[in-house]
Design a protein around this nucleic acid. Structure first.
Lengths: 138, 138
DNA sequence: CTGTAAATGAGATTAGCTTATCATTATCAA
DNA sequence: TTGATAATGATAAGCTAATCTCATTTACAG
């Protein structure tokens, strides 16, 4: 599944991807994004750079970036998946009920795991705040 | 939309529902449930009481119970909706990655809203823990 | 008991998101 | 420059959850 690689000194390196303007565009959008973006948002934004960009291509690009660990999937109930750079550190999200955009929320109360019943093994958790973002609240 | 009513001394009372064994079964299952149940789980459980129970009927029963406020919807990313009695008070959920069942988690750290960026208006929040439930962890 | 209309159940249908197909285009090693 | 082949884009197809259709059954007021 199309995997970009930066190791360049070995013949064993698997080169399964090529550099294209559509992938670059998707990557660039995510690079500069301040919040998690859905495929549709990515498509809209990246289309401005690459005319005629298709949805399938965005899905493929996103799949590749997830596979290489450069971005992560953000799951919010009732919402399509969003994607954001994986190097942001542990944090959570805010979902605006009006404009439907997702935002990052810094920090986390990590004694959350203590809430779990005895004998339950907590591996991860997710916190989502809902309401109105700054723009929509005014 | 099929609304059961218990007020019986007024002619203005809207009677839009009849008492049936399938609705009773669904209600009874939810009554005794210790955790949020999906439509499939409800169908399976209630089918033992009412032979031949159909999915559509469960959806309709659940819809009515939500409408009358007796149960609430529990949304978990990537999971079908679960339902639980509405009188449980504020709490959150644990999703077992192995058996795929959802469980209740008592309590809540309600300073969560403080995590939101300035000017954001937080109306509600949801916390979901992931991992292995007691049964699956052993 | 009876008639009427709500409720049921089987299956078709919709809706939203994601993946697969395939002819065409474009990358890149040689 | 060129050839193989990965990537693209349009769209069909898939998936899952939930709703709708409609002939039949059933509740229940009178």
């Amino acid at each position: 599944m199309a995997k970009h690689t930066e190791l360049g000194m070995d013949k064993l390196v698997i080169r399964a991807s090529r550099k294209t303007k559509q992938r670059d565009a998707v990557r660039a959008i995510l690079e500069g994004a301040q919040r998690p973006l859905s495929v549709d948002e990515l498509l809209k934004a990246a289309s401005r750079r690459v005319k005629g960009l298709g949805v399938a291509t965005v899905y493929r690009a996103v799949g590749a970036l997830v596979a290489e660990g450069w971005i992560e999937t953000v799951e919010i109930p009732g919402e399509p998946a969003r994607y954001e750079r994986a190097d942001k550190g542990h944090h959570h999200h805010f979902q605006c009920e009006k404009c439907d955009r997702a935002f990052d929320v810094a920090g986390c109360l990590d004694n959350l795991r203590k809430l779990a019943p005895p004998r339950f093994r907590v591996k991860q958790h997710s916190v989502t705040l809902y309401g109105l973002c700054a723009a929509c609240a005014s």
